[in-house]
């Protein structure tokens, strides 16, 4: 997945300079270029549109305040998604974890029963829901990497760049996430471990 094209092929540093100078259109170009990437990340993280939209807005507000921290030569997409990722984790820690835990504790068994009674399509839908709940139980970094890999469909190197970690670490954390999901899901998918 490549960096989104900015209008007029403007280099990232020029765009940032124009926004710093108060150029509203430059800022809108900036939002236009990355809004969907941020939304994808946040939606995958929270699994609902409203929270994802909040994160998109908050990310660009935060980016505007932190324009001075952008280092020229650095990937603009990496910088944007790094801030979005931090906001997602903060937001999740503040508002989400307990709520999701309660929901998950209550409904995992219900989901399995429902899956047994319905057909294949329903089972697929339930699996998706079940997976989403299990993803919320992962550690922050594991969750972020799984989401970026499977929902945002980033390659390992892109994730490494965005999260500022080594590609080997990305692979290893992704594998841990998969292993954790396996152990969470195996009782519900009827797979012998």
């Amino acid at each position: 997945m490549t960096e989104p094209a900015l209008s007029n092929s403007q280099p990232a540093a020029d765009l940032i300079d124009r926004i710093k100078a108060g150029d509203r259109e430059a800022f809108k170009d900036f939002v236009r270029a990355y809004q969907q990437k941020v939304f994808q990340l946040a939606y995958a993280f929270f699994g609902n549109r409203e929270d994802a939209m909040d994160i998109v807005q908050e990310t660009f507000l935060r980016l505007h305040q932190k324009l001075d921290t952008f280092r020229s030569g650095y990937s603009l997409q990496g910088w944007v998604l790094q801030i979005a990722k931090n906001l997602c984790i903060d937001y999740f820690r503040k508002n989400y974890r307990r709520r999701k835990e309660l929901e998950s504790e209550k409904s995992l068994d219900d989901l399995q029963l429902a899956a047994e009674e319905n057909g294949a399509a329903a089972r697929a839908a339930e699996l998706k829901d079940l997976l989403s709940r299990c993803i919320h139980k992962l550690a922050d970094k594991q969750r972020m990497i799984f989401v970026m890999r499977h929902y945002n469909q980033f390659q390992v190197e892109e994730i490494a760049r965005i999260l500022n970690i080594a590609p080997g670490t990305v692979k290893s954390l992704h594998f841990k996430a998969v292993q954790n999901l396996k152990s969470q899901l195996s009782p519900y998918l009827g797979v012998s471990r």
Partner: peptide, 8 residues
């Protein structure tokens, strides 16, 4: 698991 993620 990956299909579930694909559905999501």
């Amino acid at each position: 698991i990956f299909n579930g993620a694909g559905a999501a």
